[in-house]
Amino acid sequence: MAVQDLLRQRFFPHMWCPGCGHGTVLNSLLRAVLELGLSKNEIVMTSGIGCSARISGYVDFHSLHTLHGRALAFATGVKLSKPELTLLVPMGDGDALAIGGNHFIHAARRNIDITAIVMNNRIYGMTGGQFSPLSGIGVKATTAPYSTIDNNFDVVELATAAGATFVARSTTYHARECTELIKKAILHKGFSVVEILSQCPTHFGRKNREGDAGQMLENYKKITAKRGSKALEENPGLIGRGIFVEKEKPEYCQEYEKTIALAMKGAGR
């Protein structure tokens, strides 16, 4: 089986701009599914609104294209009713942490077995390049022509603090690493978050003079370093890549099963 067999090919070529990192995220994600040998029928992908959310239309899995920011809420419902299914929830940075910020922290707190992938391009691409909570200070956007003054969330720190039991980060330049991290995230029992830095050459790149898609990818190579590497130790300003959190904690659906068993004890007597 090839990656193309996991696609709804009738919708291709996809609607993402030339050089959009979201296509690479889709590519890495499908390879992870392929390498794990998961069946299409076992996977449910839910997504919200935005460029990134269009991903659920392109995959030949069960898919739900839902409300803005509510992908995790829908995924929670699906997972609770059918815990045997694998839930994949790719979200954009705004979708996950602005509009869906509350759902994000509470899904992490519950430690429900869902794999959340944050496709972080640091901008709202579909609506014309407004800044997002992940843009950070000093970024130019349609809504910040004199550059932003807002601090950004750190997805890794936020997810860790909220209680996610698997947290990792990579970039679209490191496609192979992305696949490995997504594989581990899917296999992890509990709430997993993988942040993938993804280039938006159309809006973010153009406004911030970061060049074309190739140059933006080159930049990811320069500004990131693997966790535990010497480069990161010597330059704390670099963004760390790799697995930040991997721990065992009771999973929500399993705990809920126990509650049901407890409540049913003595029923029918």
């Binding site: 070529p13 996809h14 050089g19 496609a175 696949t179 990818l217």
Partner: peptide, 13 residues
């Protein structure tokens, strides 16, 4: 394989 893995359009095999 890096061209195939990085292609955002999934156009390379």
């Amino acid at each position: 394989m890096m061209c195939e893995l990085r292609c955002p359009d999934l156009a390379i095999e």
